[in-house]
Design a protein around this nucleic acid. Sequence first.
DNA 1: GTAGGGTTAG
Length: 426
Amino acid sequence: MAKRWEDVEELMDEMVRVDCPPNIATFNTLIAYLCRNGLYEQVHETLSQMPEHGCTPDLRMYATIIDGICKDGHHEVANDILSRMPSYGLKPNVVCYNTVLKGLCSAERWEEAEDLLAEMFQKDCPLDDVTFNILVDFFCQNGLVDRVIELLEQMLEYGCIPDVITYTTVINGFCKEGLIDEAVMLLKNMSTCGCKPNTISYTIVLKGLCRAERWVDAEELISHMIQQGCLPNPVTFNTLINFLCKKGLVEQAIELLKQMLVNGCSPDLISYSTVIDGLGKAGKTEEALELLNVMINKGITPNTIIYSSMASALSREGSTDKVIQMFDSIQDATVRSDAVLYNAVISSLCKRWETDRAIDFFAYMVSSGCMPNESTYTILIRGLASEGLVREAQDLLSELCSRRYRQMLVGGGDYCGGITRMDLPT
DNA sequence: GTAGGGTTAG
């Protein structure tokens, strides 16, 4: 629609001509679209057109604008608009506050978030369950789990009801901090608050138990969840398969892959991907290739991740030709090669002392629009150096350094479309 | 036509 803005303007003129003038709903639709796409010049323009149609921005429109601005990361502007709303005769509601609160939390600007909460109390704007969920998520994302139980209690005191996602967020926060026993306890206690854990809640705790290598507890929990009528889903299985593979227990992972079908789950792309990678890392490249074929025969199309696992496995066993063959075979397919895949190819060439070809590949990578990452440079620099091409290695190293410097410079921008100059009609 | 949050693979 961005390109057809003239059409929109023309359509609005026509609406007036046929005596069906745009109303507040028309403008809200437009503003929502423009905000979603960061087209603040047009937001400004549209707002200035509203008075001639007898329309005034309402609470909902402000909420939309504030949301768009927050999602673009311009919290000061959002906060500024929020504070100017009363002068336009509008009292910000809980939706407006929550939107800005979420923006401040995402930007980890906790002090300002606290100020905003204080303002909500002071301006007599009651918090709701969304407010609490934003805070719970923020605490969990930032490892502040020691404060989160208290927050849940405050939430209940306030008359807001945590739901299964609220509890699962907290459980996940505990697991991420290694507090597995706390996670298990909450999983068991949430039912007493009238909220039953679901498959996702159990899967998260299972992952935590696996990470802590508490296999017996994990098995018990699986039985427990099934007893409770919560069936494992593909993600549950994939989580377990992943841990088995990481521990080198690929045979057991394959067993679990078969068990999925018995339990009414079909192994998906990620199930196969995990086991294929596990087989490759265990040096069972032939078996990995066979499983890849099984997967393809089941109608599942391999993606870049699977190919890069395969390429790494082939590269590891020194089958450089097979790596290149595979790479060539997917060039006309829909899979888009990424840096990890290119790195596997480049690395296998370096292994065979073919740094010339590796450099050619590097050039092809860049010309195909794939951005090299640090590993790409590391692989090449090592390859060049081990062939005694010190000068070339040094050049590449300085290129890497200047790239890092450029990346440091990017992202310092402070531009915010036309919204800073926005002169909202009243 | 307004705000929020949870799980899997290289």
